[in-house]
């Protein structure tokens, strides 16, 4: 069995159970995500989607089973520069003003030594990430003054700036206007074309829908569907075929 970098699964979840406050939230979840796949994790509120994602990135610990990233169990995983994470957030702002540039450059910390300033190439990476989410004019703006959709784009840029191999997004489109959703669907499409593995949790995929290779549906802490995406899951309704020669009808 080969365990080389290239063939290791990006994410391998084996018999995972997670408890939160003594209550089982995930039960016996098995999930394998190959490198280059684009996977949507779907499910209602409380189905365990966010818990699964947080366990994958090591924010929560497993009660049973394990999670491997690129073949390494998460507690021993050190190559965090290969992972870009967009947490579920209402706002990107803290108690002190911070500019878009400052927030995005904190995405480079996994490849930065302590007590050293940013290198020129890293500064350029920040500018490129801002370009990707269509925010280059906002680099000196305070994040707290941006709209919700723009703040979410800043968080996406922060995850993309380190050029990760695995991008994990928790509800990236929640409360975001359609124009912003379209912009980061484009940003993520560009990453997918370069072979990045993407795992995203969502209620409503919106413009991201077209990117998905596979969807995983959770219900009450278990995987109840794992396969190609189909319309009823992703809110992308295709009109039933009714002949096609009817005239278009007017609506207001």
């Amino acid at each position: 069995m080969t365990r080389s970098e290239d063939t290791a699964k990006a994410v391998q979840v084996t018999d995972l159970s997670v408890d939160l406050g003594g209550r089982p939230v995930l039960r016996g979840v098995d999930l394998q995500i190959r490198q280059g796949e684009v996977v949507a994790v779907l499910g209602t509120n409380g189905s365990g989607k966010s818990t699964l994602i947080k366990t994958v990135v090591g924010l929560l610990s497993a009660a049973r089973g394990e999670v491997r990233l690129f073949g390494t169990p998460v507690p021993r995983f050190r190559q965090w520069r290969r992972v870009g994470y967009v947490p579920q957030r209402i706002t990107a702002a803290g108690g002190v003003p911070a500019t878009v540039y400052e927030v995005v450059s904190s995405g480079l910390l996994s490849q930065r030594r302590m007590f050293t300033p940013l290198r020129a190439a890293q500064k350029q990476a920040v500018d490129e990430a801002l370009q990707l989410v269509d925010m280059p004019d906002h680099r000196k703006d305070a994040v707290a003054e941006l709209s919700g959709g723009q703040q979410q784009r800043v968080l996406i840029a922060r995850a993309l700036v380190s050029d990760p191999d695995l991008l994990i997004l928790d509800e990236p489109t929640a409360g975001v206007d359609l124009a912003s959703q379209q912009i980061f669907a484009d940003a993520i499409r560009e990453r997918v074309a370069r072979g990045t593995t993407v795992v995203m949790v969502s209620h409503d995929l919106g413009p991201m829908d077209a990117l998905i290779d596979r969807s995983v549906v959770l219900r009450r802490g278990r995987i109840v569907y794992d396969g190609p995406p189909h319309a009823s899951q992703t809110h992308a309704h295709v009109h039933p075929h009714t002949g096609g020669d009817e005239p278009g009808w007017l609506s207001s």
């Binding site: 947080k54 990135v57 090591g58 924010l59 050190r78 965090w80 520069r81 992972v83 994470y85 947490p87 957030r89 990107a92 803290g94 108690g95 002190v96 911070a98 400052e102 927030v103 450059s105 904190s106 995405g107 910390l109 996994s110 930065r112 302590m114 007590f115 922060r158 380190s162």
Partner: peptide
């Protein structure tokens, strides 16, 4: 001052900072 970027990240978004391996 020296640990500014690291401390900034931890104070700004603790979860994200953990996933960068800090």
């Amino acid at each position: 001052i020296g640990l500014g970027p690291q401390l900034f990240a931890v104070c700004q978004d603790e979860e994200f900072a953990r996933v960068t391996g800090l």
